[in-house]
């Protein structure tokens, strides 16, 4: 079993790309059920945590701007750590992530161990 980082991204900036209040509210239960399902398989690698949606971005010229980092269109909405055998299995779990229904995506990274 390996640890995987799942990063949820979507466009939180562009007005025309935002889900309606109705859609947002309807997304609560799928999130709860999806996370509950991962926990029910004992696949959560670390406790869940909420992350501030804005944050800061630091650059070499000491120019610190308010986040979120959005050079690319999407920014981070949240992240979790899960346990999975391999990338295939992690992808299968990520396939159920409700952010996909809101036009977002999930980036997956496997934790690497130094041998």
């Amino acid at each position: 079993m390996n640890d995987f980082l799942l990063i949820f991204r979507r466009d939180f900036i562009n007005k025309e790309d935002q889900p309606s209040p109705e859609q947002l509210q309807a997304s609560i239960k799928p999130w709860q059920d999806w996370l509950g399902g991962i926990a029910a398989q004992d696949r959560l690698a670390r406790p869940l945590q909420r992350w501030d949606g804005e944050g800061k971005v630091v650059r070499k010229d000491k120019n610190i701007t308010n986040g979120p980092y959005a050079e690319i269109k999407e920014s981070i909405g949240g992240l979790i750590f899960i346990k999975a055998v391999d990338y295939d299995e992690a992808v299968e779990i990520a396939n159920g992530c409700p952010i996909l229904e809101l036009g977002g995506n999930v980036e997956i990274r496997m934790a690497s161990t130094i041998d």
Partner: peptide, 16 residues
Amino acid sequence: QLYNQLLILEYSPIAA
């Protein structure tokens, strides 16, 4: 939803 929260807090087979 209570079971979802419980499992996120602490896994147990019977709760699952």
